[in-house]
Structures are given as structure tokens and as C-alpha cells.
Write a protein that binds this DNA or RNA. Structure first.
Length: 198
DNA sequence: GCCTGGATTATC
DNA sequence: ATAATCCAGGCA
């Protein structure tokens, strides 16, 4: 298949309402979609759902603090934060006002302007580096402007895997919840801890 | 104000 | 295995 152009992707931009659904539904549906920023785009192949204030792995567990307040707004907006003082993490707020939900984009495969190396967007810190995303994009609306999501590739039937989230061992019982979604066996996925098919 | 510890990655 | 690097959140 020929890679689409940025203009073609822009024509398929997903509207705010698309994100205003249960975070697990959105996290799964994002697989195969393009994350576009300026002249660059990657196919989302790995995501994690963060469910709200009761989710002890989520920044929303402290309520609508200065940093996490955006998570309690309406779906379809970016939430970008600095992790370990080193890496920027890109999330998309989901659900409706007050929900506190968001999806972390953990890996993208090269689509436009990212070269050929499947490792370039493998891991959440590398996603932001590859797509030139930073806290400058925090709270940006994905419904307008040069940062958006659009359908791009159909994920083969049965190729979506589900399992526990990465790096949240501190979250007690929530650490084991099956809230990580990825395209099974895709070379751009960050970890290969296999679990169950869908 | 001070202290603790990360939704990670590259390198030792 | 561990450094890098900084800021949010908790407590005094």
C-alpha cells in the first residue's frame, strides 16, 4: 500500500465526539489510526487506557490537580507531561467532562516523514520524539489544527492483543488490569508480554 | 520549602 | 543494573 499524504489524512480527521466514549473502547479503536503532527505521521500500534480517579495508576488519582486537570475535561484533547524528568508522554483525553480518562500512546509505526526504522516510534518517549511532540502540545484540541488522528490502516482480524499496562507496578490491584492494547507481533510495539487475543 | 519517586530510555 | 534529570504531589 502507498502511504497517504498529510492532506489525505487531514480529510479523515476524527472529530471530538469520536473520543468521547469509554476509554477502553477508544484505546482499542486507536490501533491502526494515524497520529499526525505537522508533516509527520505514525500508525498507532500500542496504547494504554487510564480509567479515571479510581485508577491508582493514573495521574487522575489525585483528582483535577494543576497537571491533570485537562484529563477531567472533554475528550479529544491532548495531555502531554514530562516523565522521569527526561521523556515527554503523549496522551489523548477521552470520555465526557469530569471523567478523568485518557489513552497513552505507547508506540507508532512510521507512516509519513519518519523514515523506515520500525524502532523510531517504539516506546512512549520515542513516540513524542519521532513526532516532535512536547508539552507545547499539552491541552491542544485534536479537532482543529495540525495535531490530529485519522483512520489509516485496517488491523487484521484477531491481531489485537490485550494485557497489563507497563511500568505501573506501584498501582496495586490496578497494575494487573488488562488495559494495554497492541497490534500483536508488530515490529514497532514496545514490549511483547503476550496475553489474550480478541 | 524540602523530600520522594516516577505511565522511560540509553548505556554500563 | 543504573544514571539521567525535573517537577508534581505530599507533608511540615
Amino acid at each position: 500500500m502507498i502511504s497517504p499524504t498529510i492532506a489525505e489524512l487531514r480529510a479523515g480527521r476524527l472529530p471530538a465526539a469520536w473520543f468521547q466514549r469509554d476509554v477502553r473502547v477508544v484505546a482499542r479503536a486507536l490501533l491502526g489510526c494515524a497520529l499526525v503532527h505537522g508533516r509527520r505521521a505514525g500508525v498507532i500500534v500500542e496504547t494504554e487506557a487510564y480509567r479515571g480517579p479510581e485508577d491508582l495508576a493514573s495521574h487522575a488519582r489525585f483528582g483535577p490537580t494543576k497537571r491533570a486537570a485537562v484529563m477531567f475535561g472533554r475528550g479529544g484533547v491532548a495531555y502531554v507531561y514530562l516523565c522521569y524528568g527526561v521523556h515527554e508522554m503523549f496522551n489523548i483525553v477521552t470520555g465526557t467532562e469530569g471523567g478523568g480518562e485518557a489513552v497513552l500512546i505507547r508506540a507508532v509505526a512510521p507512516l509519513v516523514g519518519l523514515g523506515e526504522d520500525p524502532k523510531v516510534g517504539r516506546g512512549p518517549g520515542k513516540v513524542t520524539r519521532a513526532l516532535a511532540l512536547s508539552r507545547a502540545q499539552d491541552r491542544r484540541d485534536l479537532a482543529t489544527g495540525g495535531l490530529f488522528v485519522a483512520p489509516a490502516v485496517r488491523v487484521p482480524r484477531g491481531a489485537i492483543a490485550v494485557g497489563p499496562r507497563v511500568g505501573v507496578a506501584f498501582a496495586g490491584a490496578w497494575a494487573a488490569a488488562p488495559l494495554r492494547f497492541w497490534w500483536r507481533d508488530h515490529p514497532s510495539v514496545s514490549a511483547t508480554r503476550a496475553v489474550k487475543p480478541t
